[in-house]
Design a protein around this nucleic acid. Sequence first.
DNA 1: TATTGTTATACTCTATAACTATA
DNA 2: TATAGTTATAGAGTATAACAATA
Lengths: 135, 135
Amino acid sequence: MTEVTEGLDQQVSDLVFAYDAAYGRAAQTVSLSAAQACLLEHLTADGCSMGELAGELLCDASNVTQLVSRLEARGLVARVPDPADRRIKRVSITPAGQRVRDAVRRAFDFPSDRLGRLTQPERHQLAALLAKVLA
Amino acid sequence: MTEVTEGLDQQVSDLVFAYDAAYGRAAQTVSLSAAQACLLEHLTADGCSMGELAGELLCDASNVTQLVSRLEARGLVARVPDPADRRIKRVSITPAGQRVRDAVRRAFDFPSDRLGRLTQPERHQLAALLAKVLA
DNA sequence: TATTGTTATACTCTATAACTATA
DNA sequence: TATAGTTATAGAGTATAACAATA
């Protein structure tokens, strides 16, 4: 049993390593860092504030400022001041940003290459197990 | 079914995010970056060459040089020239490095906090599914 | 006075290119 | 000449502290 547990820990570690590597490669295909692609992926239709993004990405607001500035310089996002509270800036994705984001999604082959090895019943099994782990 | 697949993709993404965050926090408890802790974790008893480490960590050799230099400056690893081929330097972990590595392992609460939510049969199930995904 | 975001700064991660030492 | 590793350099990620604008 200890063996199984240690084996499982290692497997999860391997999974995370493979996932991160695949995500980095996908981002690189459009000259984005993983952090930039991740931010792009977190943007909602109505636009997120800088603070909300920092909270979701678990990083400092000053870091978000830099990431958004680089994405904005490439025309992938825009800062829109909130009319109701002009301290707040909402970050929205531009059409060019949507195209780049879609390209990252298409290039990200982990779901199809790896999770695609499971049958449909196995996917349900895995989903149930992960639900418990992530609850 | 599409719903389930998309849900599964998101769950795996959430798992990776939670894992990475937990690992970073664990490393931070001993003032290591995640990259430094990861290198420390990859060291074997006989010592890895710089090139082997670069291969395992999927990064450039010059990056390994810097990481090892910082760990060496803290007395956590040592560079030992290979007697058979003096171009090669084997990186070995010091007793202080072992203590720090163990501290990271103890502080890394993901396996106990998250995987610990599964029963033993569920762990076997998950291990079997991950074996297929990682094969 | 409190909050949102930015700026200045510093350190780390990471890669590329040029270099040294050894084979 | 080829290989292992380092150095120099540069761009990006990240946090802290100080700051500006707004509430």
